Computed example of a mutant assay.
Amino acid sequence: MNEILDSIVIGGGQAGLASGYHLQKKGLQFLILEASKQATGSWPHYYESLKLFSPARFSSLPGMKFPAPPDHYPLRDEVIQYLQEYIKQFQLPVMTSQRVTDVEKVGEVFRIHTISGETFQARTIINATGCFHNPFSPLIKGQETFKGHVLHSSEYRNQNHFANQRVVVVGRGNSAVQIAIELANVSRTSLAVREPVRLVKQRVWGQDLHFWIRVAGFDTFPFWRFRKKVPILDGVIDLGDYKERLATKNPDQQPMFTSFYPDGVVWPDGKMEPVDIVIFATGYRHNHPYLNSIGALDSEGKPLQVAGVSTETSGIYYVGLEGQRSFSSATLRGVGPDAEFIVKKLLLYLKN
């Protein structure tokens, strides 16, 4: 493609679509490149029962409200449908099956190469892929000898095939607890944690927690600059009966095991317990190798950026990074304000 666009958005999930909305609003020429066959981000790869931690009233992209009652907590498939409708509503220029393999900068123009063999040119790039395509699982001593199954939470879909199994879920975050509670209905399940799970009430004084987060300014204040965790935000949101279930040890919590052995895991007290399946709900890591050649990443592969603006490569921007500008940056409700901020920065760059 010989045309030089104003911007190329890499990633067609929520962050990419929000970026497209604001680029379109400013009348810029752009394309959204999505690696998969549909522009719905990582949502199709999450477990089927996943429920948003914020209600519909706080779960919208810019320009289009989530089509559900304000206090409804959307499920995974509802989000997927919403993203598909969002593309249609604004007729966003999305090209699917365009996984980016390399980016080079020639003068003031970026050349973006995709796995399909195509090359696109643009004066700026918004990287909106997030981290959810690169699951992280720690290496535990003896893991290579374990005869059971090891998987990451990103591979978990539903409780089918887990009946009557001995399962250990590693982690203490929202996904770990939600998966463990679901599996505890059909199997003997434990959470392996370094610290006990801390629960946060979903509703406080008749309002959803996110109402108070917004009122208090936690949703936009850049706590990341101070490298401190905010207690009210550092916990698992109780989506129902979590407190009761954990109190009755269904699932139970165990101190993180120290190693594997062929038939199971070894707990800190030295007890060896047979286990069928271990699920690591241990998060994700940055994965933007195509930006390496233009010096946009540090030695660990993390974007060198402040508030979504590259500090090393002019013309590179980000939307959807965790903690990019606020607590909500990587969420449905957070990518819109961040995208608006980035597009304003991008416009200033294009005018210079």
Rank of each mutant, 00 (worst) to 15 (best):
164 N>P: 14
170 V>I: 13
172 R>T: 12
172 R>K: 12
172 R>D: 10
172 R>W: 01
173 G>K: 00
173 G>D: 00
174 N>A: 08
176 A>F: 08
179 I>W: 10
179 I>E: 01
179 I>T: 04
181 I>C: 13
183 L>S: 06
183 L>A: 05
187 S>W: 07
189 T>F: 00
191 L>R: 02
192 A>Y: 07
192 A>M: 04
194 R>F: 05
195 E>T: 13
196 P>K: 06
197 V>N: 01
201 K>D: 15
202 Q>G: 05
203 R>S: 05
209 L>M: 13
209 L>R: 11
209 L>Y: 15
209 L>V: 14
211 F>H: 13
214 R>Q: 07
215 V>Y: 05
218 F>A: 03
220 T>N: 07
220 T>A: 03
223 F>A: 06
225 R>E: 15
226 F>L: 11
226 F>C: 09
227 R>G: 05
228 K>H: 03
229 K>C: 12
230 V>H: 02
232 I>V: 12
232 I>Q: 07
232 I>T: 06
232 I>N: 07
233 L>C: 13
234 D>F: 04
236 V>N: 01
237 I>W: 04
237 I>R: 07
238 D>A: 04
239 L>R: 11
241 D>R: 00
241 D>C: 06
243 K>T: 08
245 R>L: 12
247 A>S: 14
248 T>H: 14
249 K>I: 03
251 P>E: 05
252 D>C: 11
254 Q>K: 15
254 Q>H: 13
257 F>D: 02
259 S>H: 10
262 P>E: 09
265 V>F: 02
266 V>P: 06
267 W>G: 00
268 P>I: 03
271 K>Q: 14
271 K>A: 10
272 M>D: 08
272 M>A: 15
274 P>E: 12
275 V>E: 03
281 A>P: 10
283 G>Y: 11
289 P>W: 01
295 G>N: 09
